[in-house]
Design a binder for these strands. Structure first.
Lengths: 150, 150
DNA sequence: TTATTCGTTCAGTGTGTACTGAACGCTGTA
DNA sequence: TACAGCGTTCAGTACACACTGAACGAATAA
């Protein structure tokens, strides 16, 4: 296994740790190394994956903002390239998940039928505060990497 | 399902999305709401989970720095409480994973047997730069939440 | 010693899901 | 029209893993 294969496999591992399919990590690594654009069929063939997986995972990477699809004039195939700011969307995803956690806390605190003791409210407040600062610094990272136009 | 159950279940969902067992999220939510300390058996009984799961997941939450274990004098049972800074360790975990990604990139770039084209090196450099700024802002969040003593 | 009560470990089970490959619909070509 | 090439969808599988419950070792009590 050469260093490129190892890189691709590690990206697959990291994707898996993030709760994403391994193949999506391999596709991303493939684009980082080899650039692009690549056609749908090239992705499936060069990575040795089924066209079904290629379809599912290119759509996933599109939804994450990592890949972009476009049509070459005169060609019926789909082509893919790395997005201009491929990683910002990931940060936005983190922010959304943390905001979802905050909403979960607020729903509990604001629920009319529950009377929580003061200590519980304090712990919930501490948790919410943690999410707020985490979101804030993620926003800072977003701006630094140039994704502040959203 | 009342609002407390919903809160617990949502924490379980978020844990699952983070690649953790659902039960670990339920235990954490249980401590956030009800405080502590609770004995090992109380955790298993009150959450209706097996002692095996209680053992595995309390250890996981200990490793994450969310729970702390201690022995009450005169009691043979293990007791658990929320750690003083329960969430910092999570951020440290994120940082470690991103550092691992950086190392993966460096291994590829520094590999003597691979001659990567300039464009590939640029893309790898951009990815590494992204991780660096993400790590940096996570460190800022760590400091703001009071976990800067490590 | 034996009995009891802890927490841990591990084999077994169930479940969710990544992945494949075939069938399908769509679009452009002949 | 029929045909070919494209991407998507979906049933089937294979596998990973969360969870259970029983067996186990350790520590205390009798």
């Amino acid at each position: 296994m050469d260093s490129i294969e190892r890189f691709i496999e590690q990206m697959a591992n990291h994707a898996e740790a993030d709760g994403l399919p391994r193949i999506s990590g391999r596709i991303m690594a493939y684009f980082v190394i080899n650039g692009g654009p690549f056609s749908f069929s090239e992705i499936a063939d060069n990575l040795g994956i089924s066209r079904g997986s290629a379809s599912t995972n290119t759509r996933l990477l599109r939804d994450l903002g990592i890949l972009e699809r476009y049509q070459k004039p005169g060609s019926r195939q789909d082509y893919y390239v790395l997005a201009v700011q491929p990683y910002q969307r990931l940060l936005k995803g983190y922010i959304e998940r943390m905001e979802s956690s905050i909403n979960n806390i607020k729903q509990l605190v604001d629920a009319p039928e529950t009377e929580l003791p003061t200590a519980a409210l304090e712990r919930l407040d501490a948790l919410e505060g943690f999410y707020h600062t985490a979101i804030e610094s993620t926003r800072v990272a977003l701006e630094k990497t140039g994704g502040n136009h959203a």
